[in-house]
Amino acid sequence: MKAEDIQPWLFRVEPYEGESLSHFLGRFRRANELTPTGLGKAAGIGGAVARWEKFRFNPPPSRQQLEALAIVVGVEADRLEQMLPPAGEGMKMEPIRLCAACYAESPCHKIEWQFQVTQGCKRHQLRLLSECPNCGARFKVPALWVDGWCQRCFMPFAEMTSKQKLFYC
């Protein structure tokens, strides 16, 4: 199956400002009932979607891959590129991190939270969370965030703000 065959039937999903590619791909796949493999096949990029959802960008996505994905998801390749870490920026694949205050304002995972140099949220001056403050469960990859809450105890991400410690930039 090619992108041209299914494109008219796909639901569009608009990216959030600063959203990580992992989170966006998960939202797009759920809206269209696609697996990572199905999306990769439709775009002609194979297993790349599954890797990118886990922040595995080595090798980084090529321009050709981003353009192929752009056709399927209906988002410009340049916009998809903004969801990736800048060239030379070190990434933490684990643990997945979250600023609950940011999430309360815009319900998405921000790519900057996974940068190696990022320890806290400069906007809210809060330390990033890497696990649920209620039950201690590590956060799943953002592609799997469906309802914006801990997958073990169901505490909403937005309510975790009160558990974040101050961070001094």
Rank of each mutant, 00 (worst) to 15 (best):
E4N: 11
D5G: 08
D5H: 11
Q7M: 13
F11C: 10
F11E: 13
V13P: 07
V13Y: 03
E14D: 10
P15T: 00
P15E: 00
E17I: 08
S22R: 00
F24Q: 02
F28D: 00
F28R: 01
N32I: 04
L34M: 10
T35W: 08
T37S: 14
T37Q: 11
T37V: 15
G44Y: 07
G47T: 08
V49F: 09
R51I: 09
W52A: 00
W52E: 05
E53P: 10
R56V: 15
N58I: 13
P59S: 04
P60M: 05
P60I: 02
S62N: 06
R63P: 08
Q65R: 09
E67V: 04
A68M: 13
L69Q: 01
L69N: 03
L69G: 02
I71L: 10
V72E: 00
V75K: 01
Q82W: 08
L84N: 08
L84H: 07
P86A: 04
P86L: 01
P86E: 07
A87P: 12
A87F: 10
G88Y: 05
E89V: 15
M91Y: 07
M91D: 07
K92Q: 12
M93T: 15
E94M: 12
P95T: 07
L98Y: 08
L98S: 02
L98N: 05
L98C: 07
A100E: 07
A101T: 10
E105K: 15
S106Q: 15
P107V: 04
H109A: 03
K110N: 09
I111W: 03
I111Q: 06
E112A: 11
W113S: 02
Q114V: 03
Q116F: 08
T118I: 03
Q119S: 13
G120N: 04
C121T: 03
C121M: 02
H124D: 05
H124T: 01
R127E: 13
L128D: 08
L128K: 03
S130G: 10
E131Y: 12
C132E: 05
C132A: 08
P133G: 09
N134I: 15
A137E: 14
K140Q: 14
V141Q: 12
P142R: 02
A143H: 10
L144K: 12
L144Y: 11
D147L: 12
G148A: 04
W149H: 14
M155K: 15
F157M: 02
T161D: 09
L166R: 14
Y168S: 13
Y168Q: 14
